[in-house]
Design a binder for these strands. Structure first.
Lengths: 339, 339
DNA sequence: GATATTAATGCAATCGATTGCAAGATATTT
DNA sequence: AAATATCTTGCAATCGATTGCATTAATATC
């Protein structure tokens, strides 16, 4: 027993009258050790509630069995942070890592160091990295590509071969959303979102795909740069609907939060949703079902995303070949777009 | 250099022509080492981008500089997880820990082990534990009180001296909410929430405080057991408003999610909010401002909570005396309760 | 200039578990 | 029964940094 009263492997070995090597092997069920001995050692360990000191183990084995997850949210404070999708994907990742015997280290980019390679890998804090929300093009992520750090990114594939990305099929999502609005009879559909954001850019491409398919003109004036907040959804719609154009009959907002902000404005203006203007969002947050009118949206498969991120990363760590993947999305139709 | 090409302290020492002990001390700016030597060693370290192997360091110093955060969310799947408050408090905790040089280990209770003392403390994974959302009385938390593991809990103080708790002043929150409704002229106020949940119980007490203060009768029939979901807010209101009573003129829902569900039902029934029934929620989630009518609520100071959790825990780890604390809350008045 | 202080540095043990290799114990073969 | 093959176990080195104590170098004191 050491100072702190915690059992050590040597204590267990002594109690079992074996060497520490035997004890170590016995505890991990190494078949080279006689079954009886294994039982004995394991029994004593359990009896004394012995737990291996993972720090010592990490040092010796040179594996941390830990994955760091970086959540990128330094953007104009408090926006992304309230995104319920984030919590859900984090939860899934945490559970999935646990399942594989890994611990999860969490950081946001707000205060943390920016040299992830040094901090996590060189310092031996983690075996790999998951980056959530690559947002706009980011130098820190780019530069990781040249290091030995195994990592995967949630987001959109940018440069073909530079790193591995897992994300929703945003282009298809945009396509489905707009196709749906068109089916409901919409002809002039506004796009609310900031296409500097990689994922939004894909949704914007999907928007165009759908218009083209329906032989509708693409008017760039209908693409309104909007932050990921209800607030901005509200005010951008106010400014643009009044000044530029009264002929809009549909809105595709790149997040439910934006859509709800927009809805509020329409409600205040007594503009009928969905009859005069139909709306569809993106994400399917919990609230969408419970506002009035309830909000149609594009649903991402967050749980599958979390699981895939972990799987791909662990494969990578084990030197197996991996490639970027897109997750399917689907339309959830509710009142806001049902004419 | 070891196999993996990573510099080790010994390499740096050799390059600087000093012993590893001197190198070690020099790197940490130990004043016992001559300034010139310190500069030399630090320079060489920087030049070669050397990073101390934290695993080795942890083993030798017996400090992990890591805090584990357990998010309790095994409740009927997917409810608490979407609570935006969770993500916000996690973000704050992460940043705050970073600021103090600690890493943060995150787990949910879904798949993880339940013997936190063994897993985190005995195994030397973390120096302390933060538990978020104690929810209903929980045996796992109780039993930690008898261990040497330093920990703090976000929630409600239950047993005076058994462990340290940080949380919003839920009783005051309930009081303020109901007092506010009364000021708006409400006389029969329904309570939507499950008082088996510790924090909700406090809100329920606050509810009673306010009624008493106004000399209004406390009708236990108006306390409707409701889960933390919009869904349940919707259906419980439906079932109870119809069958039991038509005289309700106010609703205090213990979360905004519940309140939004309730609102939806009232909207569908063409019941005027706030004129016929005024509503107030709890949490101030982002959506509350953007539904129609916008939702009045009680706002928690999540950021302060996160900071306090970290501060108290670190104090505890450093053997300083600490005590449980309540955070102030405030009413945010919006349309749903403005007559 | 010899001795007493003080400042800098290095030696070697230590943290606790893991593992290659050797040795001892047991079983099998001839 | 001797020789060989097969099981089990233990020895001792190792992972990389930290630290108590001893030692050497530099400075001060008489």
């Amino acid at each position: 027993m050491n100072k702190k009263n915690l059992m050590t492997l040597a204590d267990i070995a002594k109690l079992a009258n074996v060497s520490t090597s035997t004890a170590s092997r016995a505890l991990r069920d190494n078949p080279v050790i006689k079954q009886a001995t294994r039982d004995l050692v394991q029994g004593i360990a359990k009896e004394h509630n012995f737990k291996v000191n993972v720090t010592a183990s990490k040092l010796r084995t040179q594996k941390t069995n830990t994955i760091a997850v970086v959540v990128m949210l330094e953007r104009k404070s408090g926006q992304v942070i309230s995104d319920p999708f984030l919590m859900e994907i984090l939860g899934t990742i945490a559970d999935e890592l646990t399942k594989f015997g890994y611990d999860m280290l969490l950081t946001t980019t707000k205060t943390a160091t920016h040299d992830w390679y040094s901090y996590y890998y060189e310092s031996k804090r983690a075996d790999g990295l998951i980056i959530i929300g690559q947002g706009e093009h980011d130098q820190r992520v780019e530069s990781l590509a040249n290091t030995k750090l195994p990592f995967v990114v949630w987001g959109t594939e940018i440069h073909e071969n530079s790193y591995t990305t897992i994300g929703s099929d945003n282009r298809k999502g945009g396509f489905l959303a707009v196709q749906h609005l068109i089916k409901q009879g919409c002809k002039r559909i506004a796009f609310l979102g900031d296409i500097n954001h990689n994922e939004v850019e894909q949704r914007w491409l999907g928007y165009q795909d759908a218009l083209k398919e329906a032989d509708l003109p693409i008017e760039h004036g209908l693409q309104i740069k909007t932050d990921f907040t209800s607030n901005d959804g509200y005010s951008k719609l106010r400014d643009h609907l009044l000044i530029e154009d009264q002929g809009i009959d549909g809105i595709f907002a790149v997040s439910d939060a934006i859509a709800l902000g927009a809805s509020k404005y329409l409600f205040e203006q007594n503009i009928d949703v969905p009859q005069k203007i139909a709306i569809i969002g993106f994400d399917d947050i919990a609230m969408s079902e419970f506002c009035s009118p309830s909000l149609s949206t594009i649903k991402q498969n967050t749980a599958a995303g979390g699981r895939l991120l972990v799987k791909i990363l662990l494969n990578k760590i084990n030197q197996q070949p991996v490639k970027s993947q897109l997750l399917d999305v689907e339309v959830v139709q509710r009142q806001s777009s049902s004419r």
